[in-house]
Simulated scan of single mutants.
Amino acid sequence: MTHSVEAGTVLPFFSSEHWQRQAVLCQWFSTLMFKEPDDATLAAYQAGDAAPLLNWLSEDGLQSEAGALQSAIAGLSVFEHPRLELAADFATLFLSDARHSAAPYASCYLTERGGFMAEPAQRMAARLANAGVSLPEHVKEPADHLAVMLDYLAGGYRQLAEQNDKAQTTTLTGIGQFLEQELCNWLPAFHQRCQHSSVASPFYPALATLITAFCRKRQQETLS
Rank of each mutant, 00 (worst) to 15 (best):
M1S: 09
S4A: 10
A7F: 01
G8Y: 05
F13W: 09
F14Q: 14
S15L: 05
S15V: 04
W19F: 15
W19K: 08
R21C: 08
V24R: 05
F29T: 01
M33D: 06
F34S: 05
K35T: 13
E36T: 10
P37M: 13
D38R: 10
D38I: 04
D39R: 14
T41N: 03
A43W: 00
A43D: 09
A43E: 10
A43K: 12
A44R: 09
A44H: 01
Q46I: 03
P52D: 04
L53K: 02
L54I: 04
S58D: 04
D60C: 02
G61C: 08
L62E: 01
Q63F: 02
A66C: 06
A66I: 03
L69F: 00
Q70Y: 01
I73P: 05
V78W: 02
V78S: 14
P82K: 07
R83Q: 15
R83G: 06
R83P: 02
L84D: 14
L86H: 13
A88C: 07
A88F: 06
F90E: 00
A98E: 13
A102K: 03
A102H: 03
A103I: 05
P104E: 05
Y105M: 02
A106T: 00
S107F: 01
L110P: 03
R113T: 06
F116L: 15
M117N: 11
Q122Y: 13
R123I: 12
A125T: 09
A125D: 05
A126T: 07
R127G: 00
N130T: 01
P136K: 12
E137S: 11
H138T: 07
V139R: 15
V139M: 07
K140S: 09
K140L: 12
A143G: 00
A147E: 04
A147M: 07
L153H: 06
A154E: 13
G155T: 02
G156W: 08
G156C: 14
G156R: 07
Q163N: 06
A167S: 14
T170V: 13
T171L: 13
L172T: 05
L172Y: 13
L172P: 03
T173W: 08
T173I: 11
I175E: 13
G176N: 11
E182H: 10
L183A: 08
C184R: 06
C184N: 15
F190V: 10
F190C: 10
H191K: 14
R193P: 02
R193S: 08
C194T: 04
Q195N: 09
Q195M: 15
Q195D: 06
H196L: 11
H196G: 10
A200L: 15
S201L: 12
F203Q: 04
F203H: 12
L207G: 11
A208W: 08
I211D: 04
A213N: 14
A213Q: 14
A213L: 08
R216K: 09
K217Y: 02
R218V: 00
T222N: 03
L223T: 09
